[in-house]
């Protein structure tokens, strides 16, 4: 599995709407929500991350998305250290 965090920039006043929509994305936790920005951490198979990222851009109220952090370590599970 891979872990990535995204900074989402919101249209003013639509933060709550977007947060609600985001909470339905599997594997995603919202770590922070502010007036203009949200921080989301996603844990998914690394191959799915590009779709997740473009999916985030389509969430209503999201202006743009930056990938802040990415850790592709597909061996995480196999190694059993999790």
């Amino acid at each position: 599995m891979a872990i990535a965090s995204f900074v989402l920039q919101m249209e003013p006043g639509r933060g709550a709407e977007a947060a609600a929509a985001l909470s339905r994305v599997p594997g995603l936790t919202l770590e922070f929500s502010g007036e203009q920005n949200l921080v989301a951490v996603v844990e998914r198979a690394s191959a799915e991350l590009p779709q997740v990222e473009s999916g985030l851009k389509e969430v209503p109220g999201v202006l743009c998305v930056i990938t802040a952090y990415l850790n592709i370590e597909d061996e995480l599970e196999a190694a059993g250290s999790c």
């Binding site: 965090s5 770590e31 922070f32 920005n37 921080v39 951490v41």
Partner: peptide, 20 residues
Amino acid sequence: INRRQFIKYSAAAFAMLLLD
């Protein structure tokens, strides 16, 4: 705390560093 949680926390922290 295990490695995975640690990475998640740091992912969040790193993203927040980019804010504001």
